[in-house]
């Protein structure tokens, strides 16, 4: 259960950061937090108490008590996607700083209305 709380805690904190913090780097950290929380949540969905990793690394393992492999596969994908987003966000942050000389999103409001 604590995993769920942790996961959603991370997501909520991430969302809070996105809503309140104005610095772009902090917002990117917020996005990362959301993604981490999501990954944690997905993993904990597949978790089984006293379960083992779904790898038949030695003979005699009982497949019945293995944890669910599908969320793990999903997390693998989700991690890659979050890495991609993160990379894009950082590149954009570099360019944004180059153009505006600031990363304060409260001040960068040329595009409006």
């Amino acid at each position: 259960m604590v995993y769920y709380i942790g996961a959603f805690g991370l997501i909520i904190i991430g969302l809070y950061v996105l809503m309140v913090k104005r610095n772009l780097i902090k917002m990117i950290i917020g996005i990362s937090l959301i993604n981490t929380g999501l990954n944690l949540f997905l993993i904990s969905v597949g978790f089984i108490k006293l379960g083992t990793a779904p790898i038949f690394s030695k003979p005699g393992l009982n497949p019945k008590i293995m944890v669910d492999p599908l969320p793990q596969a999903m997390v693998l994908t989700a991690i890659v996607i979050s890495v991609a987003t993160l990379a894009m966000a950082l590149a954009l942050a570099i360019r944004l700083y180059e153009h505006h000389g600031t990363l304060d999103m409260g001040k960068i409001k040329d595009q409006k209305w």
Partner: peptide
């Protein structure tokens, strides 16, 4: 009405949430 799109990305996220 178009002032809704105020240009502040925090506000946009607040809309979503």
């Amino acid at each position: 009405v178009r002032k809704i799109y105020c240009g502040n990305v925090n506000v946009y996220v607040i809309y979503i949430i």
